[in-house]
């Protein structure tokens, strides 16, 4: 597969962008989900009888927090496979 210089630079920018996108995009969900789970540990220790309720809330909250990570993954895959 051979490229002209301009095509190569366009695709190169897309690939560098894909790396930066997934990298930075993983920052927020990772910290956020960890914070949720930390607070859930605290909650379950303080009131163990509500463990199942707290676990459910933790998982739902983490799923919402995960969404931006998945957006980044989708954009990174689009940049790798369908641009340039």
């Amino acid at each position: 597969m051979q490229f002209t210089l301009a095509q190569g630079i366009v695709k190169a920018a897309a690939l560098l962008g894909a790396g930066l996108c997934m990298g930075m995009g993983a920052l927020g969900p990772g910290v956020g989900e960890g914070f949720v789970a930390g607070k859930a540990c605290e909650g379950i220790a303080r009131s163990p009888e509500n463990a199942s309720l707290i676990t459910r809330t933790m998982l739902v909250g983490q799923a919402v927090s995960e969404s931006t990570g998945i957006y980044s993954l989708v954009i990174a895959l689009l940049l790798i496979f369908s641009t340039g």
């Binding site: 790396g19 990298g23 910290v31 960890g34």
Partner: peptide
């Protein structure tokens, strides 16, 4: 860049 920045969040969160 992807794996470099990508580990900051999970590392700190866990």
């Amino acid at each position: 860049f992807s794996i470099g920045f990508g580990t900051i969040g999970p590392g700190a969160g866990i």
